[in-house]
Simulated scan of single mutants.
Amino acid sequence: MALGLTGCARSSGTASSGSSAASVGASASSATASATSPKPSPSSTTPAPFAAVGKYGVGDAVTHPTCPVPPSQHRTFKAPGKVVPDLPELSRGTDHGAAADKWVYPASSVQKWVTTPTTAPKNKKIAFITFDDGPTASMTPRELTNLEQARVPATFFMITPQLQDVQTSLLRRSLRDGNALAIHSYSHDYHYLFHGSASDKATHVSCDDDWAVAQARDVLGAGYYASGFRYPGGHMSWHNLRPADAALGRRGASWIDWNAESGDAEANPPRTPSGMVAYLKKTMAEEGNPRVLVILNHDAADKRLTAESMPSLIRYLKAQGYSFGVMN
């Protein structure tokens, strides 16, 4: 499988992907209301709601972090200096709503299952569909419709300043559907995040995460909390990240890479939906067809083929016996 840098195509200081947010229509609401998912059988891997209420700044007034704002093409958000009310669909202390409770897993568990496949649950197969580089106003709504029609959830790893570009109705729709809204950074700037010593990286990654969470809370509410963090380019692409990992850990966050992908950010990506399914199969086979899949996709503005291919990708995963989960 290609290194993470090929799986998240945004270079330092460039706006890689955008996607769109549309308001929720009646058809989306009805699709959500009828959505079902296989109920997990009682076991050590049964999803359980995770809450960090009272920890990691949950419920505090939203202010700018004390470290300098990381580089971003977006304007610095206006911190209100007060407790921002949560969106009605957000479960306080989480990155999701109540609809996700039956299929949410701790990010730390998913990280362990992917990095050490022998620890994965033996009584089931779980696929975590993930999207990086959103939200955007053009592709994110299309992916939400795909998920609603297939009755499966996904985890959206957000570049949080882009929350300023989408309508609140899109975010409420995503939470209502049972998706999770995790963190993919504030800056998405490789040079800022990963240049210099291990100590420099830890300083910048932790500062970036603080700004990312603050921006998310400014939009989603002071009760927002995500324990899933995806490094831009992927953890697998960088060296000397142990201090940065520890800094994230002190914030209650675990980094999440992937072990399968649609190929939508490769230098020579698939050109058709069937090509994307074939690419997914190839990356799964390279990893030994693991019981737990974390699948990299993007909901950037230029990822139209990903949206076109998602129904086929989901059908293939269902045919292979996978259930679906999200991370917090």
Rank of each mutant, 00 (worst) to 15 (best):
225 Y>K: 02
225 Y>H: 14
225 Y>E: 02
225 Y>C: 01
226 A>P: 08
227 S>M: 05
227 S>G: 01
227 S>D: 07
227 S>C: 00
228 G>W: 10
228 G>H: 07
228 G>Y: 09
229 F>T: 03
229 F>Q: 01
230 R>V: 02
230 R>S: 10
230 R>C: 05
230 R>P: 03
230 R>H: 02
231 Y>C: 05
231 Y>T: 04
231 Y>S: 01
231 Y>L: 03
231 Y>Q: 04
232 P>N: 06
232 P>F: 00
233 G>Y: 14
233 G>V: 12
233 G>E: 08
233 G>W: 12
233 G>S: 11
233 G>T: 11
234 G>P: 12
234 G>W: 07
234 G>S: 04
234 G>I: 08
234 G>F: 04
235 H>V: 12
235 H>T: 13
235 H>C: 09
236 M>C: 12
237 S>T: 10
237 S>C: 10
239 H>Y: 13
239 H>R: 14
239 H>L: 15
240 N>K: 12
240 N>S: 15
240 N>W: 11
240 N>Y: 14
240 N>P: 06
241 L>T: 04
241 L>F: 08
241 L>E: 02
241 L>S: 10
241 L>C: 09
241 L>K: 06
241 L>V: 02
241 L>H: 11
242 R>A: 15
242 R>V: 14
242 R>K: 15
242 R>Y: 15
243 P>S: 03
243 P>C: 07
243 P>F: 01
244 A>V: 11
244 A>Y: 07
244 A>P: 07
244 A>K: 01
244 A>T: 10
245 D>V: 08
245 D>G: 00
245 D>Q: 14
246 A>N: 10
246 A>C: 04
247 A>I: 05
247 A>S: 13
248 L>I: 12
249 G>Y: 06
249 G>T: 02
249 G>W: 09
249 G>P: 05
249 G>E: 04
250 R>E: 02
250 R>A: 15
250 R>W: 05
250 R>L: 11
250 R>K: 15
251 R>Q: 08
251 R>M: 05
251 R>I: 06
251 R>L: 04
252 G>V: 05
252 G>S: 12
252 G>N: 09
252 G>I: 08
252 G>T: 06
252 G>W: 13
253 A>H: 01
253 A>F: 01
253 A>S: 08
253 A>N: 03
254 S>W: 12
254 S>H: 14
254 S>L: 07
254 S>E: 07
255 W>L: 03
255 W>D: 00
